[in-house]
Nucleic acid binder design. Sequence first.
DNA 1: TCATAAGGTTACTTTTTGTAACTTACTCTT
DNA 2: AAGAGTAAGTTACAAAAAGTAACCTTATGA
Lengths: 122, 122
Amino acid sequence: MFGHIDYRNPPELCPVRDVMSVASDQWSILILLWLGYFQVLRFNKLKKYVYGISNKVLSQRLKILEADGYIERKAYPEVPIRVEYNLTEFGQTYVEKLLELAEWMHDNSPKVIANREQYGLN
Amino acid sequence: MFGHIDYRNPPELCPVRDVMSVASDQWSILILLWLGYFQVLRFNKLKKYVYGISNKVLSQRLKILEADGYIERKAYPEVPIRVEYNLTEFGQTYVEKLLELAEWMHDNSPKVIANREQYGLN
DNA sequence: TCATAAGGTTACTTTTTGTAACTTACTCTT
DNA sequence: AAGAGTAAGTTACAAAAAGTAACCTTATGA
């Protein structure tokens, strides 16, 4: 692992860092987690669950996540158009990892918040 | 988990999202992983391993990570000053999670890169 | 004829990052 | 005695990313 992340390589030459910077992006994580929970979601539903994201960033992240192979986009030529997003099989395996992370966050965020407040007192 | 991340709460009212946005930040992850690997690192060594990070962002991230309780900062009043950073016990538990994530990235980044290239062809 | 709907895009503003020079305080070299 | 070097940052300014809100398309139903 650490042999592989050669610290002397500029970031753009380290594929692990490159891939990680997309997959560990705050909005991407939330998008993937909600897709993991619902299986299929349309653009506006996603926007609703990934609370606070803008159209612009949602649309941009969905494109990257599709390009990287985590999700699939299906457009139905109805009117108004219907577009559905879902995880790929590959995306599923990643979401399993993310769920562990999210669970850790869920269990430990009170502690972090407490730390943060105590630190503020100094 | 998903009941807890109430999608109707503005981001600043969801502690899990708040904590996660610090802990899953690209630079923070790299800092924590290298501290996990070396136990103790000084500012300039960290800067060397977390290749590409600027003084400004490194210093800012270290402060947040310290405030959140992941790392500890020890300053020795020598000349020139010596400052050492290390994980707290709490930070260690998080780094274990991060290592799993990093391992997944290491194993799967070739696939993502391949996906990305294929997508470019369409 | 006009409002509505889904899934975006666009122009513009604000926030976050990156860059590179500067600071501090003491020691070592010349 | 003047000047250089050192670690750990800080600061001012420029560039990139994100947020905001209005707009687009195409057809259907009122």
